[in-house]
Amino acid sequence: MDSVSSEGLSLITNVGLNHYLVLSTALFCLGLIGVLLRRNAIVMLMSIELMLNAVNISFIAFGKYNNNIDGQIMVFFVMTIAAAEAAVGLALAVSIFKRFKEVNIRFFEHLRG
C-alpha cells in the first residue's frame, strides 16, 4: 500500500518525457474529436491547429530529452506550414461563404457537379 502510494506520488512529482507525450496525445485527440464532431468549417480549422500544436509539443519534448536541437527546427517548419494552411483554408471559407452564405459543412454538398 505504502509502495503503491509512493509510486503514484513519484508519477506526479517526477515529470519526464512520458508526461509531455501524454499531454501531447490528449491534445491531439481533442483536436481529432473537434474535426470529426464539429460542423463549422472554421472551427474544424481551429481543431486542426490544436492537433498541429500537440505534435509540436512532442517534437520539443523529444528534442529536449534527447539533447538534440533538430526537434525545434522541425517545429519551425510545422508552424510555417500551419500558418499557410490556415491562410488557404480561411480563403476557401471566405470564397464558399460568398457563394452559399454559410460555412456549415452540411451545405457543402452543393459542391457536387
Binding site: 509531455y20 481551429m46 520539443i60 529536449k64 525545434q72 480561411l90
Partner: peptide
C-alpha cells in the same frame, strides 16, 4: 509549455505566429 522545455525562442515564435497572426486571421474571418 515550450518555456518549461527550455525552448525559449520557439515559445516566442509560437506567441507571435499563433497567438498573434493566426488568431487574428481566424477572428477577422
Amino acid at each position: 509549455v515550450f518555456v518549461t522545455l527550455e525552448a525559449y525562442f520557439v515559445a516566442g515564435v509560437q506567441l507571435i505566429v499563433y497567438a498573434g497572426a493566426v488568431m487574428v486571421l481566424f477572428v477577422m474571418v
